[in-house]
Amino acid sequence: MLEISNLHVKLEEEDKQILKGVDLKIGAGEVHAIMGPNGSGKSTLSYVLSGRDGYEVTEGSAELQGADVLDMEPEERAAAGLFLAFQYPVEIPGVGNMTFLRTAVNAQRKARGEEEMSSTEFLKVIRARAKDLKIDAEMLKRPVNVGFSGGEKKRNEILQMAMLEPKMCILDETDSGLDVDAMKLVADGVNALRSEGRSFLVITHYQRLLDHIKPDVVHIMADGRIVKTGGPELALEVENNGYADIMAEVG
């Protein structure tokens, strides 16, 4: 599904190398988690993959189902099936959540040469999806993320994911700022979307999210590289011993 090879990324504005050769291969239907200390480059990886300005790829490649994503505009990446759930979802006053989602769904369909979703069909689908995530009708009408609590914002990200039906979902610290119940709700939302044709990359600091979203593979990222890869037990190791041991081990 996603294949990242030797990815080197620096900040555009300053001479600072953030990613120093990331290799990562995620197969269809797999859930991978990336853990790592602050400043290791986890969020940068998610931004570079989704096409945010301000980063320069100096070496390496990233392919989504064989297509070079680094060459695409952010909206093209989205239409190709990439989705980033933001760590800090952006508030957009004056634009209704529903309007925003419909614009996005239909823009992607149009880009893929598919027929646009009628408003009746859209309403039907969004109501059902929103209900699963305990998002009420009022929240759908409100401007995008404006006045939403931390939990509501994250649930809204998952709702967008559910509506856009991406193939490759990247969750950037989706657990940050969530209480236990909210995390459970978000994780349930994600688990409901797991399928053979859909892969996930879950970026997190803590193991507890991975109790709910069980990963197939866990990677440890440090200083712009993936330094260790293992099974779910790796996350437990981090939880119990912190990163120090792993860092010492990998030098």
């Binding site: 989704s50 096409g51 945010r52 300005d53 909206e75 239409a79 952006v90 957009i92 614009t103 823009a107």
Partner: peptide
Amino acid sequence: TALFYLRSRGVPL
């Protein structure tokens, strides 16, 4: 940031 957010959902520039 907001512009990127919208584009990342597939909305053209």
